[in-house]
Amino acid sequence: MVKRKLVQFLTALLYNGNLPGFWQGRLWQGSSKSVCLPGLNCYSCPGALGACPVGALQSSLSGVFLRVPFYVIGTLLLFGLLLGRLICGWACPFGLVQELLYKLPTPKLQRTAFTARLARFKYLIAIVFVLLLPIVYYLLTGTGVPAFCKFLCPAGTLEAALPLAAVNAKLRGSLGVLFSWKLLLLLVILTASVGIYRPFCRFLCPLGALYGLFNRISLFGVKVDAAKCIHCDACMRTCLMDCRQAGDRECIACGECRSVCPTDAISLGKKF
């Protein structure tokens, strides 16, 4: 899976190609910022050349006027229909960070029926924090709030808050309780990532939840040849996500299961 790591690194680099932004503490202001990236990558990361789809979705539900984000919804549909959660496995910088931490040689918590149940939690996060809370805030206060970005997103803390605060004294001075909470959350997730494979992606990520809904119908991804499959479950014994079968909504198309399939029933690529 060297190729996957290479693509993950390249993606992270291309998402965040404004490298001088990191030491200048400045955000990229080019027109590419109005383009949604496929993966979760904070708009306010100093290196970010594009917008986070979850952030863009939240942005439309922020402030004193709620908007229907046709462009963002269309972009998410396009990415979902084309690639599904393959994006999580191949083109998400925060997923890469978690995977690298998981490589540290420590005891690992294996997937269980409990983690499979916990994987449903991300759908609740998506509905409550991305959709409902901004609208509830709007109805109660007249101002929508980007609840997921504001209260939860660890990618934002890692990619934006920390690098910007490191070089910008004014921003450091304005950090408060909310930053402390989000830093704590980030540290918990990063620490958990050492012993649990991609915990944020499996249990919390609203973007993964959304893309997962397209996994069965996406053009590219993991496909199981029913005629060849002997239901030996070798693939599921290898799977680090919470899949019940290769290519289901939890599958991030990492492709690890292909190498253990005794009948070569699993393929990764164009499905239809």
């Binding site: 190729k3 693509v7 390249l10 993606t11 291309l14 998402y15 190609g17 404004n18 080019g30 027109s31 590419s32 383009v35 990236l37 496929p38 050349l49 594009g50 084309l82 690639l83 393959l86 191949w90 083109a91 590219f220 198309a253 492709g255 990764l268 690529g269 164009k270």
Partner: peptide
């Protein structure tokens, strides 16, 4: 697999192209 790589690389190249113009 190759098609996925090509698809991703095209996507990344398009982004890089757009950003280079900027």
């Amino acid at each position: 697999m190759k098609k996925i790589l090509i698809c991703l690389l095209l996507l990344l190249a398009a982004m890089a192209g757009g950003c280079a113009a900027d």
